[in-house]
Design a protein around this nucleic acid. Structure first.
Lengths: 355, 355
DNA sequence: TTTAGCACTCGTGACCCTTGAGTGCTAAAC
DNA sequence: GTTTAGCACTCAAGGGTCACGAGTGCTAAA
């Protein structure tokens, strides 16, 4: 703790931030307000002196002379690191969430929707939930399927070990029979089960006997392209929920802010770059304002947590909103939901490394 | 043609609407402006009389006495039906679009992204492109695959004949071997190929020999549930592109309008109900303002066209924006892109009914 | 039936004023 | 040295007034 941060200053900073983030509207907080609301044992003049000191320390600021104080990014950071009280979810809330996940446990593609919906609708709402699907960094082949659609059209279904599915139609000059396709798929499945993209490459270079037909080569090329594409787009699309609710906040009275948010969410700008970091960290990550040098994010914060296991099948889940965010509660929600999702994921993929 | 609609009135109405929808800002058009811009052979006073008459007929309106005229929904409708000049895409634009689709022809899941991107970025931009994935109303089983993830976890992959893929993990009490799973899948594929959900139901009721194991019954139940769910959500999620570009329009200076649009796009309100109709019609559908009694849509128009074949595998593609929309050009774009997509779809599924 | 002329309407933007919340400072009290 | 009362000062927000000008609607003449 910096020596300048006396206990009283900590108390006042904490109260200012709590007051500010909990109020429905973003009104700067004044010395008299604090005095009355929290029945402090010193006068408003003293508070004003302390507020001035906290401003000197860079933790608070104000928009103009005759306005109350609002936290700076550094102020929020200090609050999150040192001052805030944890606000765990109630047992009832935990049960409800567990129950909802239990109902869709098998449907991996529903997870991200559910997670986002739950986070967006667990009070306090008014922030946007963001989730990426569970994915592996280095994808491996789980299963290959070739289905004759009709004579010269074949549907390739590629299942990767993280559960990602990629489908692709192929047209061929030579008509393919379903029997023949099954034979090809079986050979591929035997040789390629569990391998990464470079092992597929090796197989193409040295297939052994019998050599690959042109059609088989095509199929393998498509498979490799698909795998590469999927590896490259890890943080491509971030699913979100609760946006409209968030836009009701007074912060979004001017269109420009709304456009900013849409740019961040729709084009992945701002949040995307934070995802790799979250995937490789344990615990909840909090990025406040422009802390990571992203100008688009200067007025927004993101709370992210990985679910699943680092380096294996994993995704991130979190909340996004204006820096004026109810951090204690939001952090608890994100932490809890990531735990639940991790447990369910472990159940699905087993407790050992996914094969 | 209503007898009141003299040629001159038609001309003036057409010019008013063209002037209004082509201008970058929504400024009501005045009699003097028309006179100067189009060198009309009669005076501004005459134009004013005609404008008053067109207002009497319900085709134009104005916001206050000292403002120029703007079209009503009925005015736009009359324009679209009777007055507008077709504005076909240039050969160059057509080539570019064809080329882009050719590059992703096999990847069905890329289609909707591409279609939306192309529509959103073909001038005039400033409207939002909307696309639904190619889907069949009555889904039939194409292929069933069971993959052992580990001993008691099985991944079911269900491929439907419209190319939709549904994955679901199942946990079982009895460990399942991959060989056994392959046998089960093969039996199912032989018996269920091409069948609709009620035929699956029949099979469960009367499986013949050998009877179904509890695990097999579970799998079939999951399959049926998945099929029902997919049939029910035909117009569930509408993919869109170009939203941010549209929000730069002056129409969206107030947040309330932006919220309306997000509600329409994110929650499917407004556009969803129009989709079944578009799927069952030929040609381009234009819904202007609140024509279909949807209050949320009162200030917006949608241009939709089916691609694919009615009743078989098909989707819709279109444009969405404020009623002040460049109809001639937008309609041409939508028409062209739906044609291209229909052709590609026919190529993928063959020219006969999909089997 | 068309047109010139002109009064009238009404939204827009500039300007000014008042109000009140809240600070910052000074000087006295503890 | 620290705390506090008192008060001058600042500044955003809201409201009222006014001038401006674009554009219509009407009247009367062509």
């Amino acid at each position: 703790m910096a020596p300048d941060m006396t206990e009283r200053r900590q108390l006042i900073l904490k109260l200012v931030i709590q007051e500010y983030i909990e109020s429905p509207k973003p009104v700067a907080v004044a010395s008299e307000t604090l005095l009355k609301k929290y029945k402090l044992q010193f006068s408003s003049a003293t508070i004003r002196n302390e507020l001035a000191a906290l401003e000197e320390l860079g933790l608070l600021t104000h928009l103009h002379t005759s306005a109350g104080r609002i936290p700076t990014d550094a102020g929020y950071r200090y609050f999150v690191e040192n001052l805030m009280d944890r606000q765990a979810l109630t047992a009832q809330e935990q049960r409800t969430i567990q129950h909802q996940f239990y109902q869709v446990r098998g449907e991996l593609d529903q997870w991200i929707h559910l997670a986002a919906a739950v986070l967006a609708h667990t009070p306090p709402t008014h922030n946007t939930a963001v989730v990426t699907p569970p994915r592996a960094y280095h994808v491996r082949v789980k299963h290959i399927e070739l289905i004759a659609i009709y004579e010269t059209v074949v549907l390739l279904v590629l299942v990767l070990h993280d559960g990602t599915i990629k489908q692709q139609s192929l047209t061929t000059d030579v008509p393919q029979q379903q029997d023949e396709l099954r034979r090809i798929a079986q050979r591929f499945n035997e040789r390629l089960h569990g391998v990464t993209v470079d092992k597929v490459q090796q197989f193409v270079a040295d297939p052994g006997e019998p050599p690959l037909s042109p059609f088989e080569t095509t199929v393998l090329e498509v498979i490799m392209r698909a795998m590469q594409q999927i590896e490259g787009q890890i943080d491509d699309k971030v699913h979100h929920d609760g946006l409209l609710e968030m836009l009701r906040r007074d912060e979004f009275a001017e269109v420009e802010r709304v456009r900013q948010v849409l740019q961040i969410l729709e084009e992945g700008k701002g949040i995307g770059p934070l995802i790799p970091q979250a995937l490789n960290s344990d615990g909840v990550q909090v990025v406040i304002g422009g802390e990571h040098g992203q100008d688009t994010m200067r007025e927004y914060s993101v709370i992210l947590s990985r679910y699943g296991r680092s380096g294996e099948v994993a995704g991130v889940v979190g909340l996004f909103g204006p820096t004026r965010m109810p951090y204690p509660r939001s952090i608890s929600s994100v932490r809890y939901i990531s735990t639940v999702m991790s447990e369910l994921l472990a159940e699905l993929y087993g407790d050992r490394p996914a094969s």
